[in-house]
Simulated assay, not measured.
Amino acid sequence: MTTRRVSLPGVGVQYDFTTEHGRRLSVVVHSDGRRFLGFFDADDPDSCVLSVPLSTEEAAAMSHLLDPGPIEAVRTDGIDLVTEHIPVGSRSPYAGRLLGDTRARTRTGASIVAVLRRTGAFPSPGPTFRFAAGDTLVAVGTREGVDALAEIITGG
């Protein structure tokens, strides 16, 4: 697995990534913030077969999909609070259902403080907020509570 950074004068920077299996991906970050994700031919590593333009928001969403790690824990009055992103997958028992149906806070003690959707963010959703497959829930609570909430949402 190798990575390479190449300056593109007047354009921006290109980052190339070669996977363990020899596939090459590229991200071009333009000086104006635009980004392009490029996929290269396995037989001809210099031939880009597909280029996908990404807005800044789309690039951020993609990075969360690739690295959905939790946000650092916050220590408050002897209680460790964590904030974590929980995806609502297409197989989630709550995709298409209301937040109130989860009874999340009652069952786990964790709170859903926002929902991130491709079309925007929804802070402080109420019990009548309807989840959609592809949403990302921003949850706050104890480690145990957030883990329990993730189990409920993913159906695991």
Rank of each mutant, 00 (worst) to 15 (best):
G78P: 01
P68F: 04
T2R: 15
A61Y: 12
R105T: 07
P45T: 11
A42T: 14
L65T: 10
Y94T: 09
F129Y: 02
E57Q: 12
L8K: 06
T18A: 11
F39V: 12
A139H: 02
V11S: 09
F40D: 11
I153G: 03
E144K: 11
D41H: 09
R118W: 09
D43I: 05
T142C: 04
R34Y: 03
T83Y: 11
H21A: 13
V29D: 12
T128G: 11
F17Y: 12
G145V: 02
D32W: 01
L116M: 14
L37A: 04
L99N: 04
P125Y: 00
G33R: 04
G141V: 00
V113K: 00
M62W: 07
F40Q: 06
D67V: 09
D135K: 02
G156P: 09
T106H: 11
R75L: 14
R143N: 13
G33C: 03
R117T: 04
T2G: 12
E72W: 03
G155W: 09
G69P: 11
G126I: 13
A148M: 02
T3D: 13
S124Q: 15
S90T: 15
H30Y: 08
L37D: 07
R107K: 08
T76W: 12
G33L: 04
A60Q: 13
R107I: 06
E58Q: 12
G134Y: 02
T102G: 04
V28D: 10
L50V: 12
A121S: 11
M62Q: 08
T142K: 03
L25M: 11
H64C: 15
R91A: 15
R5Q: 13
I79A: 05
P9N: 03
H30C: 13
D147C: 05
D43R: 11
A59S: 13
R118N: 15
L54W: 01
E20N: 15
A110S: 05
R4E: 12
I153E: 01
R5Y: 08
V74G: 06
H85P: 12
P123D: 05
G12D: 00
V28L: 07
R117L: 00
D44Y: 01
D32H: 07
G126L: 07
T108S: 01
R118V: 11
A114I: 04
E84L: 10
E84T: 14
R35I: 06
L149C: 05
F131D: 02
G12S: 00
D32V: 03
T56A: 14
E58D: 10
P9A: 08
